[in-house]
Design a protein around this nucleic acid. Structure first.
Lengths: 147, 147
DNA sequence: GTTAATGCAAATGTTTTGCAGTATA
DNA sequence: TATACTGCAAAACATTTGCATTAAC
């Protein structure tokens, strides 16, 4: 409860400070994104949002995901070939490990990526703003199944 | 000329050995992919192919890109949000550095990614088959422009 | 001659957009 | 009250698929 209020006011504050209107839909979407510990795609978020506001539309979801992305509130990933997944921007940088069989996603810390970043930035004269490391393979369960 | 023949026979050999038919379209597409030093998307490849075979269709391009991917001849990347890019599978592993402003892509070697791979694989009990490191930012030119 | 590959057109699935109505500041 | 946001439907976009024709084996 206290937690939920904190979240709500957090969202409100962020939207206000960037002179975006605080609408019921935006608050709901941000709340759902924060609550979720998975990486949601637009439709999954839409389905969840509908449970609490059956009039919300998919375009609103898309429009707001873009807004959140622009405001730096969520990150967009391209795990699946077909569509995007979103997660609230994490405090600590982390990378992803993806099982190609069951789709499980594991997050892992990658402190070395900071050093990488500096080295590569210097070497190619780039101002680097993001590092994305993705490893793919089979998780232990799928590996044992010998698919 | 000798080079072109080598390429053609290479393609032919690969297609033959996997009991795929060697068609003019496949030979052309593989040749274009190998010649290109950029990362092409399906439509760019289609446009280039049309210059040499005006009857080729976009579905053939898509179908064959999938085939090439399955045969391990090309790699698929998701640089842009909207659609996929392809490059012939490189001899040496390399990673990508992407300018968010002009779209320039720089390839860089990343020998550390092998060590990463082992560490993370052990830690999370994954059988890792691929490592993809992507850094994003601004290239020196775009950085100077102060966009 | 068989069968796989192609070209075309139509279908699919995700994402975007135009516009009239609604809610926020 | 002014205007940004929403919902809806239609459009746009990349990609896939069904089917008759063509070409490789």
């Amino acid at each position: 409860m206290a937690d939920s209020n904190k979240q709500k006011s957090g969202a409100k504050q962020i939207l206000n400070s960037s002179s975006q209107r605080v609408t019921a839909q935006r608050t709901l979407l941000l709340e759902l994104l924060r609550q979720s510990d998975e990486h949601l795609d637009a439709d999954e978020l839409y389905q969840q949002a509908r449970k609490r506001n059956f009039r919300i539309s998919l375009s609103t979801v898309y429009r707001n995901l873009q807004l959140f992305k622009k405001l730096g509130l969520v990150e967009e990933h391209h795990f699946a070939e077909e569509h995007h997944h979103y997660e609230v921007k994490p405090e600590a940088e982390h990378q992803h490990l993806l099982c190609l069989n069951c789709g499980k996603i594991v997050e892992f810390a990658c402190p070395l990526s900071q050093k990488f970043r500096e080295d590569i930035g210097k070497q190619y004269d780039f101002h680097i703003t993001g590092v994305d490391v993705r490893m793919t393979g089979l998780c232990s369960t799928c590996c044992k199944k010998k698919i």
